[in-house]
Amino acid sequence: MTWRLPVIVWQLLFFVGPLLFMIAMSFFLVKNYRMVEAFEMTSWIKMFGKGYFWDSYFFTLALAAWATIVATCVAFPAAFGLAFKVSDGTRRWIIFLLIIPFFTSYLVRTFSWYVILAESGVINNILGYIGLGPYTMLNTRFGTMVGYMTLTLPLVIILQTLSMANVDKNLIEAAQNLGAGRFQVICKVIIPSAKVGLIIGAVFCFILSFGDFVAPYYLGGSKPPTLSILIIDTTKSGQQWPRAAVVAVMMTTTLMIVAFTAIKLAYSKKT
């Protein structure tokens, strides 16, 4: 109990506490620019009645879904190569390299992309020499997607690689001996065996993209704003904390539904 209690108290006080308070705050009122504790549905009704909230909501959902699909598909061949086509030692080194991006500032990497993708940036500069462009890449979905991939791709590749490297090699050989082609081995043996890791990678990608405000703001131009940008705007400039709390609660609920559905899918017996 000596080891358990401090952790429980700490987590309740500084993790569960803030989240529960945020839920309570979504029922508070704002009077004369000051927050008043109350139990009213005002903020919920206000937010649900606004067209821009639902625009943001479905836009964010679609962006995160796209990011998940793109990251999963882009990562898969890379992870496949890492899991089956390189030695164990090389794989360990490459995974170490893939950890490096986590410890470089995401903000700085975004700024780099900004400079690279800009109208007069590096790519258009180079294209200019061969008489192409300039292309608009900033403030587009493409820009946002580049940002999301910067954030999520290394993690998705690592998770996919680890799950595929753990697939029983005997299983693959057995399938090959029974006459399965390459494609069949991938679809019928590798993907089902590595399912849990593949889905967990996708879920993390969804969570990260859904909550990120940097890529959609600086590379995507924030039109329309995503939910996280909405939270920042309502808190920082509007002082409308209860409304920001409504957005945050909606986001958390959505994420929980997505995560639970995915995990159920991952551990379902059917393949």
Partner: peptide, 21 residues
């Protein structure tokens, strides 16, 4: 779950909740 959950909550939500708390 209580101990391991924090990294799965988007930072911006954690930020708002912490600030308010």
């Amino acid at each position: 779950v209580l101990a391991l959950l924090p990294p799965t909550i988007p930072l911006i939500i954690l930020a708002l909740a912490m600030l308010a708390w």
